[in-house]
């Protein structure tokens, strides 16, 4: 690859594949500069980057189903057992 090829600006199709490395801070500095340069001049890739960030943010709002009351009871029971066991050990 020639120096010229290395300096070639990224096209949009390449940008969407680099985006995770970019967000993860895994792009080497020179590539990061080319990425930033493209974003600065391309509103569509800027929008795409915002959408990826928004996707990550929204995924982060998903939560697991809460414990059922049966499970709460079960883990409460486990806790009491262990606490009593512990108390017995200390007495012995």
């Amino acid at each position: 690859m020639t120096i010229l090829a290395l300096r070639r600006p990224y096209v949009c199709r390449e940008m969407v594949e680099l985006i995770t490395d970019y967000l993860e801070g895994a792009l080497p500095r020179s590539q990061r500069r080319r990425f930033d340069a493209h974003i600065a001049g391309c509103e569509h890739c800027g929008e795409y980057l915002r959408q990826m960030r928004e996707t990550i943010r929204l995924t982060g709002t998903l939560t697991d189903a809460d414990l059922t009351s049966a499970m709460r009871e079960e883990f409460g029971e486990l806790f009491r057992q262990m606490r009593d066991e512990d108390a017995r050990d200390r007495e012995a």
């Binding site: 199709r13 594949e17 569509h44 890739c45 795409y48 915002r50 959408q51 928004e54």
Partner: peptide, 26 residues
Amino acid sequence: GPAVDPTRFDADGAWASPPRPWEDEI
């Protein structure tokens, strides 16, 4: 597979059918 459907780019690799802005809408 590519991150984005390849038919959304033109022959030069630029957006032909760019993402429509979300944020307010979503």
